[in-house]
Computed example of a mutant assay.
Amino acid sequence: MIYIGVTGWGDHNIYPTGTATSDKLQEYGAHFPTVEVDSSFYAVQSASNMEKWVKDTPADFQFVIKAFQGMTGHQRGEIPFSSKEEMFDAFKESLAPSKGSGKLAMVLFQFPPWFDCKRENVAYLRYCREKMTGYPVALEFRNQSWFSARFRSQTLGFMEAEGWIHSICDEPQAGEGSVPTVLQATNKEKTLVRMHGRNIAAWMKPNGKNWREVRYLYRYNQEELLEWKENILKLQKQTKDIYVLFNNNSGGDAAGNAKEFIRLMDIEYDGLAAKQLDLF
């Protein structure tokens, strides 16, 4: 099956006027069968939050939950744990509602641009995989060295051997801090595709406090989406389920592109939530 959705559910232009923030996930489930949870990157979520999200979504809905920043070395804020063991244990505890309900598609480990292909980083990937035994985990790089001519086949072989789901990216090709689109699944059951846009000018040039928002300012045109339709058809020969998440939402384009892609893929989803009715 091909699951198409977007990252987060708070800021998209798909909701009826006046929809409360607390009700948006319920409405989101009327449009898409999957979503990426980004809030888990900034803080390990409480069980009550996860339980509400599970309750607010249809039976077959799927969550891609982003690994906490301390687990991937970003550390943009304070890490409120005394050890890696405590951090991983707290994160896994937070996954219990989604895992127990069958709604956990995978946990996404997205590593930063400075996480390059070297021995100690390979060792850390093994550590992460061991700590996440029993959980489906996806791996996304932001450093080009992993897919250099020297290491590409070894990287893919390592991911397959260690049980990592490949998070394939569409993103600007802006040197060392970006990765090419590598259309190879490393897991026969699941593959993740993340659509970051192609705003090459903003990708690697931080400019002001809102640069992270600017870098995802992009709208895919139909030709680019048709190119990805062919890519998905190729990936279907390698893997059972494909999750396609649009992350180009700085200008509100992700939901529109996701809906257009569903149409181009000729997909009609069963089991979505009922849409809200406007009161007037």
Score class of each variant (00 low, 15 high):
Val64Pro: 02
Lys52Ile: 04
Val64Trp: 01
Asp116Glu: 09
Leu108Ile: 08
Lys84Gly: 04
Arg76Gly: 13
Phe91His: 15
Asn49Tyr: 15
Lys84Ser: 13
Leu95Cys: 02
Gln45Leu: 15
Gln69Ile: 03
Ala96Gly: 01
Pro113Phe: 11
Thr57Val: 03
Trp53Ser: 03
Trp114Ala: 09
Asp89Phe: 15
Glu86Thr: 09
Asp60Ala: 14
Met71Leu: 14
Asp116Pro: 00
Lys66Leu: 04
Ala59Val: 08
Glu120Trp: 00
Ala67His: 02
Ser94Ile: 11
Asp89Gln: 15
Phe61Ile: 02
Lys52Met: 14
Asp60Asn: 14
Gly102Thr: 05
Glu120Ile: 00
Lys55Leu: 05
Pro113Ser: 13
Ser82Tyr: 05
Asn49Gln: 13
Ala96Phe: 12
Lys103Ala: 10
Gln75Trp: 10
Met106Ile: 04
Phe111Leu: 11
Lys55Arg: 15
Cys117Asp: 10
Gln75Ile: 11
Ile79Gly: 03
Val44Gly: 07
Lys103Asp: 08
Phe115His: 00
Arg76Leu: 13
Val54Gly: 06
Ala67Asn: 01
Ile79His: 05
Ser101Cys: 08
Phe88Ser: 14
Lys118Asp: 09
Lys52Leu: 11
Ala67Ile: 07
Pro80Ile: 09
Ser98Lys: 07
Leu95Gln: 07
Glu93Asp: 15
Ile79Phe: 05
Ser82Trp: 04
Lys84Gln: 14
Thr57His: 10
Gln69Phe: 05
Cys117Pro: 02
Ala96Glu: 13
Pro112Gly: 08
Ala47Tyr: 12
Ala59Lys: 13
Phe68Arg: 05
Glu93Val: 15
Asp116Ser: 13
Glu93Ala: 15
Val107Ser: 02
Glu51Met: 10
Gly100Phe: 11
Ser48Thr: 15
Lys99Val: 06
Phe88Thr: 14
Ala47Thr: 15
Phe63Ser: 05
Trp53Glu: 04
Val64Tyr: 01
Met50Gly: 05
Ser82Gly: 08
Lys66Val: 06
Trp114Ile: 12
Met87Ile: 10
Glu86Val: 13
Trp53Val: 04
Arg76Met: 09
Glu86Trp: 12
Gly102Tyr: 10
Lys99Cys: 00
Gly100His: 10
Asp60Leu: 12
Met106Cys: 09
Gly102Ala: 13
Asp60Ser: 11
Thr57Ser: 09
Glu120Asn: 03
Ala90Asn: 14
Glu78Ser: 10
Ser94Leu: 10
Pro58Asp: 06
Phe68Val: 02
Arg76Pro: 02
Met106Trp: 06
Arg119His: 07
Asp60Val: 01
Trp53His: 08
Phe61Arg: 04
Gly70Thr: 11
Asp116Arg: 07
Gln62Trp: 00
Met87Asp: 11
Val54Arg: 06
Ala59Gly: 00
Arg119Tyr: 04
Ala90Tyr: 15
Ser98Leu: 06
Lys92Gln: 15
Phe68Ser: 04
Lys55Gln: 11
Pro58Val: 07
Met50Gln: 08
Met106Gly: 05
Glu85Arg: 15
Pro80Gly: 09
Gly77Phe: 08
Glu78Arg: 13
Lys84Glu: 12
Phe88Gly: 07
His74Leu: 08
Lys52Asn: 14
Cys117Ser: 12
Lys84Leu: 14
Phe63Asp: 01
Phe61Pro: 00
Gly70Pro: 01
Gln62Val: 00
Pro113Gly: 09
Glu78Ile: 11
Gln62Gly: 01
